[in-house]
Amino acid sequence: MANMNLYSRGDKFFVRINMVLVGLFTLATLYPFIYIAAVSLSSGMAARSGVVVLTPVEATFAAYQQILVDPDFWNSYLNTFIYTIGGTIMSLLLVIPAAYALSRPQLIGRRFWNLMVAFTMWFNAGMIPFWLNMRDLGLLDSYFGIIIGFAVNAFNIILLRNFFESIPRSFEEAARMDGANEFQVLWKVFIPLSKPAIATITLFCVVARWNGFFWAMILLQDEGKIPLQVYLRKTIAELSDDHEFSSTLLSSLYSAETVNAAIIVCSIIPVLLFYPFIQKYFNKGILLGGVKE
């Protein structure tokens, strides 16, 4: 299939047009990132007058200097790390043992427990009862509330349970002979065999935590506890409705646009660093594991 010489003239034309179209779509995907990076490195005046297209105009680090001296920025960055790491560990601690238990045939009421988990994917009480419940539990404005409140996801449990179920019984027999208990079988047999599946749900958790903003925004009033996304959201709100703020800074080196772009760049960088690791897994097609039962 890969030998172009076998292709007719019409096919060659088709293949080349296709290559160009894919190239254009790829550039269109890439361009906003380049544009934002260029804005973040331009002067406030240049950004405001709309002359930034591809490369920085009147290049300056002023916007970055502006945010890097803001203690709120660093604080929210640190909070994001706390929520991401804490939340992911909490998720794994709850999800892995539960998925293992649900995969055991001897579990009494297995159908019931599975239904209890799956039902939450079909029916959700919604924003208000969830919020009222968090308030009644005293989990507003709390690190722990954010970490525990979103720790379990039915989809992740089912994905991992399916993976555990696909592991042949013969793998655990040797361990059982040695008198291993359930915890030891899980730890020494199932977890090592399920590294790809566990990596997948870890990835889901990390990405969801890093990017999550809505619940952090409504559950956290204390500015000291907000994550990066909520911090970013505030600067975006200023960008969309406060034009006077920006125009007074017209003469200066930075503007609402450049500061906003600089924060976007700062919050994308860790994702880019993490991205090769992410790719390693979804190239194997494991992310699709949940689609088929």
Binding site: T29, R48, G50, N211, I236, A261, I264
Partner: peptide
């Protein structure tokens, strides 16, 4: 594949910047 891993807030930030009337 990359934009999938970008948060909604960043997406909104990019959109608001790109569609701003003056800038």
């Amino acid at each position: 594949y990359l934009p999938h891993f970008i948060s909604t807030v960043i997406l909104a930030g990019i959109v608001l910047t790109a569609f701003s009337p003056s800038a």
